[in-house]
Amino acid sequence: MLVVTTPDITPAQLDAIREHVEAAGLRTHVIRGEQRIVVGCIGDDAALVEDGLAAMPGVESVTPVLKPYKLAAREFSAGPTHVRLGSAARPVIVGGDALTVIAGPCSVEGEAMLLETAHAVRAAGAVALRGGAFKPRTSPYAFQGLGREALVMLAEARARTGLPVVTEVMDPRLVELVAEHADVLQIGARNMQNFALLSEVGRVQRPVLLKRGPSATIAELLMAAEYVMAQGNRDVILCERGIKGWDPATRNTFDVAAVPVLKAETHLPVLVDPSHAAGRADLVPALSCAALAAGADGLIIEVHPSPAEARSDGPQSLDLPAFDALMARLRPFAAAAGRTLPAAELAQVAEVAA
């Protein structure tokens, strides 16, 4: 339920409205617009339907929100949400005018390859570094990541380059450990409906990158985001990474329509992962351009110095020259969409002191 206030509402009247709603067992979320304040009522609002809420001083209208997701719904925000990554001194804003490109290896395989990749993607214009420390694999015999050792390497790469770090967390018991080393906690597609994990990352003050499950509907993705936001963490970034299809020509089917649907349904920023959608490096540039044309706020791309030697997802990873070429190709698409990309020449800087 949304309570729209009058333009001249007083602080005392606003407090009285919130107390009235919370006395009925609901939580309140204040949305401050340019001309109106809106109070979002979160919970079972049946107790408020028949009472005198609409007649309270300062209330202009009361509107029920029929969507199952409340905090993630577009109506619950005065405008698009901007999620800040990294330190206050060098922030990266996801969801603003500038497109966000996150790049790096599927998994961290060693310090040298990680640093080589981090410097190269930054030089090409990427603003954050991805890299898996803990890897969920279909086969229990496949490379599962270096774990804690990789987290230390990611933190060192951030110290050397200044790039915020994005890495996946798979276990509620490891959330605090990963949060100590990473700037963004990624929830992978396999864990999109791991509700214990979603609730746990919701209690940590770190942005969350939430990937759509391979068989999940858009509504289910938004309900997963609601689990995180309901615990108090509103810094959620959604990611479309392809859904299961019947054609083996690609690893997944890139649901390009999901991007504008999500932009209409939610205030949260939306990224696209063309690497997992394609499963083939040669298709990543085309899908990246399509994502920006559809309105995505950015991309998360797998990049490896030598994809043929990668221990995971080599066929879908771009090598360093290919990523540099992709960033150059994306610039006219970004301009056509009314967005910007960081200039490559500005990204070529010396190592940041630890």
Rank of each mutant, 00 (worst) to 15 (best):
A142C: 08
P105S: 08
K135F: 08
P80H: 11
V39D: 00
A123Y: 06
A128Y: 11
L66K: 06
I37R: 01
T63W: 09
C41A: 14
M56F: 03
Y141I: 03
R84G: 00
L99H: 07
S107Q: 02
S139N: 05
D45R: 00
E60Y: 06
R90L: 13
R137F: 12
V30C: 05
A24H: 13
C106R: 03
Q35N: 08
L99Q: 10
A120D: 04
A142I: 04
A47D: 02
I42A: 01
G96Q: 08
R148N: 01
S139V: 07
R27Q: 03
S61F: 00
L114Q: 09
R32Y: 00
G96S: 14
A120Q: 10
P91D: 09
M113A: 14
T28R: 02
A128R: 04
P57Q: 04
R137Y: 10
L66H: 11
H119K: 06
D44F: 10
M113C: 02
I31N: 07
V39P: 01
F134H: 13
A78V: 12
K67C: 06
H82C: 11
A123E: 15
R74D: 06
E75N: 02
T28G: 02
T138C: 01
V108R: 08
I31E: 13
G86D: 03
S77C: 09
P68H: 09
V108S: 06
M56K: 12
E50Y: 07
R74S: 13
G52A: 15
T138H: 01
A72H: 04
A78G: 15
A46G: 02
V92M: 02
P57S: 12
A73N: 15
H119A: 11
R122F: 09
V38N: 01
L53V: 03
A72G: 05
L85R: 08
I31W: 02
A128G: 05
E34D: 13
P64A: 14
I42H: 05
P136G: 12
R148D: 13
K67Y: 08
A55M: 04
A103Q: 05
A112V: 14
V101W: 09
I31K: 03
A72Y: 03
Y69R: 09
I93L: 15
V121L: 11
H82A: 13
G110R: 07
R32D: 10
V127P: 02
R74M: 14
L26F: 00
R130E: 14
A126L: 10
A118C: 10
G25M: 10
G132W: 12
R137V: 12
T100R: 05
T28W: 00
R137D: 11
M56Q: 14
G58I: 04
R36C: 00
A54M: 02
R84W: 01
V49A: 14
A73C: 14
A124L: 11
A89F: 06
F143K: 11
G25H: 03
T28M: 01
H20R: 15
M56A: 12
L48H: 02
A103T: 06
T63D: 09
L85E: 05
A98Y: 00
V30H: 03
Q35F: 09
K70A: 08
I42T: 00
R122V: 10
A142Q: 07
